[in-house]
Design a protein around this nucleic acid. Structure first.
Length: 554
RNA sequence: GCGCCUGUAGCUCAGAUGGAUAGAGCAACGGACUUCUAAUCCGUAGGUCGCAGGUUCGAAUCCUGCCAGGCGUACCA
């Protein structure tokens, strides 16, 4: 729709230039926007204002010249007006809209697909929570965002890989082992103290009981080092299994689980560090090895190997990201909690130092989630071991509601997540508002087949029946969907789809309440059935990208 | 101190690349079910877009300064 209009405008500009009416052919890009007020038509362009400088003419005059040279197909453009400082307003014929319904019915799940990615390989790494405890709601938001971004990019023509990075080496795992081990001892001998720097959560006790059950009391008492090591491995494995399960129940499945430890075992970490040393990017200073991140825009250099010989987390990350590109990624997107934002300059530096362009690396910072219950904050502290786990939240409010709510905000803004609201089956809770559209249309369809109308099948003359203002509004919104996808993919912004769906849902509910789809007039009913079926398909497509189901019944 | 994020209706938030009279939902008030699902709809009311300058035909949007809140500034992960 928009594209067709743009083409007409570009042609008109060229024609005007050839006729000598325009002085320059260095035309600005034609930008069309949907108007807010009906008096401004369906679309408007600011072309004349943007061209005023090159043409050295008053905007309104440019607009007039353009309109004079514009071809106005009778079945497409109803009227063109010049308004205000030089806007050109286009009023489209009612008949211009119905073809979108035919497109949607035909393209079905493919409607809105764009090929922005052109098959380029892109990796989205998300969640990547340490395997030292169960996922909490904050991880849930990261999971919803990462998964949806991956869906959107795949739909926009990228070859997408979803990856989870497991921090399964280093101190935190030893601490995990020690925590479980000490809980074992405690279970056998209550006088043993449990230090504050150990993981406090109740799940540690459960794991300890399991260790005792599996390995017996003697194992705990015999060799402490061996027991701690065992506890660490056992606990990490069990927790990862739990995380995987929780994510699956949340509808998130990864293509790859990448182990940090494997970077050590395979020698990849050492290799990258040696390479950077030989290139002088990593240098020795005061007993430690430093990365010249400053050369790439960081505010100070960063340690990769400490004076005690142990590598830092950053060292692993350099090797890890290097490996991502070696595995063939054209672009890498990391989804992090906003508290890691200080880490971006050094990670970007590392990516560039190992041979990639800056554009090949992107970080999505997800702001935190304030969990509420009926407006009152729910206590959340990982260290004290009291937090609401993702599993608890999903069990309570359901995966659909949780995912939708996580995506109702730009991830750059903190999110209040109220458990009571998430459970409400009303307009407070937008997920049901959107899903209800899908269910309502399913219901119309089954009634239609009961009446012998059968499936929605588009006939060219149906467009003539879709003339109500609410119908035009719906078709306008439907025709916008591909642009929404494109912009969501480009800006990595799933919430634009969320908002689009809420708006489309609202238009549908309004229509539904004002007009009957199924009535005495068979031709009219069939036409409207096609329209609402196309709405249903777009709703389903959009919800799918968000990772939310589209129910037939509610 | 320095850096990043945020500041829009009573509340929670949309407003990509600057566009015409700044939008939704909730809460408040008043209406609509013998009809394809009322998990819905219609109407009313609600604003100095944190403040002050600047850029231009035009600024919530871009620039500068200030104010308020959050986060980050490790030989931690």
């Amino acid at each position: 729709m928009k594209q067709r209009l743009k083409t007409l405008i570009t042609q008109a500009a060229r024609k005007a230039f050839e006729a000598g009416a325009f002085k320059s052919d260095a035309f600005a890009d034609v930008e069309l926007e949907e108007t807010k007020a009906a008096a401004h038509g369906d679309f408007a362009t600011n072309f004349a204002m943007l061209s005023a400088k090159q043409q050295k003419m008053a905007p309104r005059k440019i607009a007039q010249i353009l309109v004079d040279h514009l071809e106005k197909p009778e079945d497409f453009i109803e009227n063109v007006e010049i308004a205000g400082p030089g806007f050109i307003n286009f009023f489209l014929c009612k008949g211009a809209w119905p073809p979108v319904v035919a497109d949607i019915l035909e393209q079905d799940r493919g409607y809105g697909q764009v090929n922005a990615g052109k098959g380029r390989r892109i990796q989205v790494e998300f969640v990547s929570a340490n395997p030292t405890g169960p996922l909490h709601v904050g991880h849930g938001r990261g999971a919803a965002v990462g998964d949806s971004v991956a869906n959107i990019l795949a739909f926009a023509g990228y070859a997408v890989q979803r990856e989870y990075y497991i921090n399964d080496s280093g101190r935190q795992i030893r601490t995990l082992g020690r925590s479980v081990f000490l809980r074992c001892k405690q279970a056998l001998d209550e006088s043993c103290v449990f230090p504050e720097d150990c993981y406090q959560g109740d799940y540690i006790r459960q794991l300890a009981l399991q260790v005792i059950q599996d390995k017996g009391v003697d194992f705990i008492r015999r060799d402490e080092d061996e027991a701690v090591a065992y506890c660490a491995r056992f606990a990490a494995d069990a927790i990862i299994t739990g995380i995987r399960e929780d994510l699956k129940n949340f509808g998130v499945v990864f293509d790859q689980w990448y182990s940090e430890q494997s970077l050590f075992d395979s020698g990849k970490l050492e290799q990258v560090i040696e390479d950077l040393k030989s290139r002088g990017i990593i240098y020795s200073h005061e007993g430690a090895w430093w990365f010249k991140t400053c050369d790439f825009g960081d505010e100070k250099d960063r340690v990769v190997v400490r004076a005690n010989g142990l590598t830092t987390y950053f060292a692993s990350d350099i090797a890890y990201h290097r490996d991502k590109y070696l595995r063939g990624m054209d672009k890498v997107i990391d989804v992090w909690g906003a508290d890691h934002h200080g880490y971006i300059p050094r990670m970007t530096a590392a990516v560039q130092a190992t041979g990639q362009d800056r554009e090949q690396f992107d970080v999505i910072l997800v702001q935190l989630v304030n969990l509420l219950r009926g407006g009152q904050p729910v206590a959340m502290s990982t260290r004290a071991g009291e937090f609401e786990t993702l599993k608890d939240v999903v069990d309570e409010v359901g995966s659909d509601a949780a995912r939708f709510i996580f995506l109702t905000r730009d991830y750059g803004s903190p999110l209040d997540f109220d458990l009571e609201t998430a459970k409400k089956k009303s307009n407070d809770n937008p997920v049901y508002y959107v899903q209800y559209v899908h269910a309502r249309i399913s219901s119309i369809q089954s009634k239609a087949s009961g009446l012998g109308l059968g499936q929605a099948r588009w006939e060219p003359d149906m467009g003539g029946h879709l003339v109500e203002a609410e119908e035009i509004d719906l078709m306008k919104a439907l025709s916008r969907y591909p642009e929404v996808i494109e912009s969501a993919a480009e800006a990595l912004a799933p919430h634009r789809i969320t908002y689009y769906l809420m708006n489309l849902a609202s238009l549908f509910h309004t229509y539904y309440n004002k007009h009957r789809v199924l009535c005495q007039d068979v031709a009219l009913s069939s036409s409207r059935l096609c329209l609402v079926t196309s709405v249903q398909k777009v709703i389903r497509n959009g919800l799918t990208l968000l990772g939310v189901s589209a129910p037939e019944k509610m």
